[in-house]
Design a protein around this nucleic acid. Structure first.
Length: 273
DNA sequence: TCCTATGTTGTATG
DNA sequence: ACATACAACATAGG
């Protein structure tokens, strides 16, 4: 599920653990979410460490710990397609999909991921790890300019705009639903080649990318609810999966089709080829 | 049984 | 070296 704003939402679910020591680590050592890393090593390092702070960027999260001897310890989590974080009562017993459980006095911090496209990694030392610092500059930062977008679209000129919006090196945090939302707002057909967009369309795309990111972070990322909130009916989001779904702006039936290997939803008439 | 799924990455090809 | 397209990863739910 998780794109930019959902990642931020889930990151905050571990906030109750801030300032507390990890006293027990339970994990599924064979789970592929650990990728190349040694799960035993991850568990060993985290025991006795205190959770100090966390950040989200693009679709990733960074949890900063300090070990008992004050050595900085960085825990990186990518939620993949089905990952979630939660805080559970003390002594929580890991279920099948709970690949990493950090036990603290008072609560357990749980990472679960059914499909295991997610990733868990750690790094040790003063410097933030490269896999964190190398994430592209945020969409809401000053580095995300019309110029930067324009250059990128020219370089990917022969590819449909939809899959280009999913490229994390320029659109960090954008996923399938946000990409459709952006194109729908900007009035651009998802099959248009990236290199074919007029300057005015590039401007609109840039503007709506920012607005969707900003709106999603406000509605989803900052929500204080137990359950992940959905954007309002005025967005494409609540209509994109329903059969017979209609465009909230034109009331025309929405179209769904595979583009670049991902189901894409758009509003005919509003978004023309 | 069959199909789909809010993601990334490795590989083949041009 | 760069750009492009797509299979593969692993599992649950309709």
């Amino acid at each position: 599920m998780p794109e930019l704003a959902e990642v931020e939402f889930y990151r905050r679910r571990w906030n109750p653990g801030l300032g507390h020591v990890v006293t027990e680590v339970r994990l599924h050592p064979k789970a592929s979410v650990f990728r190349g890393m040694d799960p035993i090593e991850i568990g060993r390092r985290l025991i006795g460490a205190t959770l100090r702070s966390s950040e989200a960027a693009a679709k990733q999260m960074l949890f900063r710990f300090t070990a008992a001897d004050t050595t900085p310890l960085w825990l990186g989590i990518h939620l993949g397609m089905t990952g979630e974080l939660s805080a559970q009562p003390t002594g929580y017993t890991p279920a099948k999909r709970d690949h990493l459980v950090l036990g603290q006095a008072g609560r357990s911090l749980v990472f679960s991921d059914a499909r295991m496209f997610g990733r868990v990694q750690i790094a040790i030392g003063k410097e933030e790890p490269a896999w964190w610092t190398e994430i592209a500059p945020a969409i809401l930062s000053s580095a995300f300019t019309v110029e930067a977008v324009s250059i990128f679209l020219q370089r990917r000129g022969r590819t449909a705009i939809k899959p280009v919006l999913l490229m994390q090196e320029r659109f960090p945090g954008i996923g399938n639903w946000m990409a459709d939302e952006i194109l729908w707002r900007a009035g651009i057909h998802p099959k248009r080649l990236a290199g074919s967009l007029a300057p005015s369309e590039i401007k609109a795309l840039h503007r709506e990318t920012r607005r969707v990111a900003e709106g999603a972070l406000k509605i989803i990322g900052a929500a204080d609810t137990i359950v992940l909130p959905d954007p309002p009916k005025t967005w494409l989001f609540p209509h994109r999966w329903e059969n017979g779904g209609k465009c909230p702006k034109t009331r025309a039936p929405l179209i769904r089709e595979d583009i670049g290997g991902r189901t894409t939803c758009w509003s005919p008439g509003r978004q023309k080829l």
